[in-house]
Write a protein that binds this DNA or RNA. Sequence first.
DNA 1: ATTTGTTATCGTAAATCGACGATAAACGAA
DNA 2: TTCGTTTATCGTCGATTTACGATAACAAAT
Lengths: 111, 111
Amino acid sequence: MAFNKREQFTAAQQQTAAIAKALGHPARVAIMQLLAQRQACVCGELVLELPLSQSTVSQHLKELKAAGLVQGEIDGARVCYCIDAAGWAQARQLLGALLAELPAAPIGSCC
Amino acid sequence: MAFNKREQFTAAQQQTAAIAKALGHPARVAIMQLLAQRQACVCGELVLELPLSQSTVSQHLKELKAAGLVQGEIDGARVCYCIDAAGWAQARQLLGALLAELPAAPIGSCC
DNA sequence: ATTTGTTATCGTAAATCGACGATAAACGAA
DNA sequence: TTCGTTTATCGTCGATTTACGATAACAAAT
């Protein structure tokens, strides 16, 4: 963006958007699901499960880590990733709050 | 992206990611909240509430509309936006499913 | 010490995003 | 018709994203 106007929004809005952005790619959704199902944990396993190259997967993991959703522990030569409990708890709270704010049923009849 | 590999993922993963991506900007989170609170509905009102230019707001609305989250009805010279009930219902379902898939508590002790 | 296997990072390229001003389009009112 | 208001679109710019191969970094094994 030319100028970053993000600071004009509330912290909650920025945090919610950051979480949503981190989940805004199918590969990252898939990674989170794989980690939750525990069908994969080590980076190399994730690479096998995903139709992406190793470097690309590594980048997606980096983004998820930056968003606080994922955590990596070095296990010898490999790295074992798992969902970051605290970060995901906050993500749940933020997304849950958004779902609560925007109910399923239409509210009125402005339109 | 150089090559689009999105079609390698499941439809649900792609849809979830698309919803998340649409919500992946503070302005769009704010717009959804404003529409839900019904403090704004007409495009011009949203512009007044947001620290962005009219054209930028219009683009964000376009993205939300493309994601099926928002709906615009022409009301004379102005356009009245509201949350798309069906689209948002699906978004709720997809995000809810993701939250259900990834529980709050850590599942095991891989890491 | 060398090799092998695993992961992160670098460099690169194309595509998309986010923002804006300017302009077009569409409507209501005068 | 003309004017003012409202919204969408166009064109543009720089920043970011997504992807990949190549390479570096590092641990374990030979």
